[in-house]
C-alpha cells in the first residue's frame, strides 16, 4: 500500500555517495552508463564491475534491495540467454555481455535512487537543465512538472482504484467498452478539477517561474569536485586500456 502511494527508493544512510551533490550523481550515472555500453572485453568488464561493486559498498546499499530492483528483469535475461543458446550458440559471449551491461545499468541507476532524495534529484535536474533557457525552456517548469507527477500520479492511481471498486460493486464486471468509459470519465473529471484547484493554490502562494531560493538547497563542495575527477580518471582509464 505504502509503495503505491509514494515514489522513490531513497534509504537514509550516512555514506559518501549520499552526501554527494545530486548533479554529480546524475552526471556520473550518464557517464558510467555510456562507458558500460562501450565495454567489450571480459577484462574491462571485470574492472568496471569491480568499480560498481565498490560504489555499492561505499553507498552502504544492501544487496537484497538491489536484487529486488533486478528481479523484474530476470525473465528478460533468461529469454535473451535462451535465444542465444538456441539460435547462435557461437555468439553466446555477446548474449552474456549484453545481459551483464543491462545489469550494470540497472545497478548504476539504483545507486542514484537509493542515495538521493526525490527532492534533491528534482533540484539537480532543475539546475542541470538551466542552460535550456537558451532555447526558451524554463528549468523550474521542468522541475515542477516532475515534482507534480511524483506528487499526483500515486494519488490518481488510488482514486482510479476507488472508482473501479465502486463500479465493480454496482456492475459486476467492467468488460464492455461502455464500462471503460464509466471508469475514465470520472477520472478525467477529477484530473481537471484537481488541476484547476492546484493552479489556484499555486498562485495563492505566489508561484513564480523565476525561483531564486531553495528549501533543500544543494551546493558543490570540494569533495564533489574531487569525486568527479576520480570518476573521470577511472572512465578514461577503462576506455584507454
Amino acid at each position: 500500500m505504502l509503495k503505491k502511494l509514494t515514489f522513490g527508493q531513497y534509504a537514509h544512510k550516512d555514506s559518501i555517495t549520499h552526501k554527494l551533490d545530486p548533479r554529480i550523481k546524475i552526471l556520473a550515472v550518464i557517464l558510467l552508463s555510456a562507458t558500460a555500453f562501450l565495454l567489450e572485453t571480459y577484462y574491462k568488464f571485470a574492472i568496471f564491475s569491480l568499480f560498481v561493486f565498490l560504489l555499492i559498498m561505499l553507498s552502504k546499499i544492501n544487496f537484497s534491495s538491489l536484487i529486488r530492483n533486478l528481479r523484474p528483469f530476470f525473465f528478460i535475461f533468461a529469454f535473451i540467454l535462451m535465444m542465444y543458446i538456441l539460435f547462435s550458440r557461437n555468439e553466446l559471449d555477446k548474449g552474456i555481455q549484453a545481459i551483464w551491461k543491462f545489469v550494470l545499468l540497472i545497478i548504476i541507476a539504483s545507486i542514484l535512487t537509493f542515495t538521493t532524495t526525490i527532492t534533491n534529484l528534482v533540484t539537480g535536474i532543475e539546475k542541470l537543465s538551466a542552460p535550456l533557457k537558451l532555447i526558451k525552456i524554463n528549468s523550474r517548469t521542468i522541475a515542477l512538472l516532475i515534482a507534480l507527477t511524483i506528487r499526483f500520479v500515486p494519488a490518481l492511481f488510488l482514486y482510479a482504484e476507488r472508482i473501479k471498486d465502486a463500479r465493480l460493486a454496482r456492475l459486476g464486471s467492467l468488460k464492455s467498452p461502455k464500462h471503460v468509459k464509466l471508469l475514465f470519465l470520472p477520472l478525467l473529471d477529477r484530473i481537471f478539477k484537481s488541476a484547476s484547484t492546484l493552479s489556484d493554490a499555486m498562485l495563492a502562494r505566489n508561484y513564480t517561474e523565476k525561483r531564486i531560493s531553495y528549501f533543500s538547497a544543494i551546493g558543490l563542495k570540494n569533495y564533489d569536485y574531487i569525486s568527479f575527477t576520480v570518476l573521470l580518471a577511472f572512465i578514461f582509464l577503462v576506455l584507454l586500456m
Binding site: 509514494t6 515514489f7 532524495t117 526525490i118 527532492t119 515542477l144 515534482a147 507534480l148 511524483i150 506528487r151 478539477k193 484537481s194 484547484t197 492546484l198 493554490a201 499555486m202 502562494r205 505566489n206 508561484y207 513564480t208 525561483r211 531564486i212 531560493s213 531553495y214 528549501f215 533543500s216
Partner: peptide, 20 residues
Amino acid sequence: DQLVYSIVEEDIAFGLENLG
C-alpha cells in the same frame, strides 16, 4: 489538490521559495 510537493516540510516551504 492544494499540496504541490510530496514531502510535508517541503510543501510548507513552497510559498517561501516563491518569495525568495
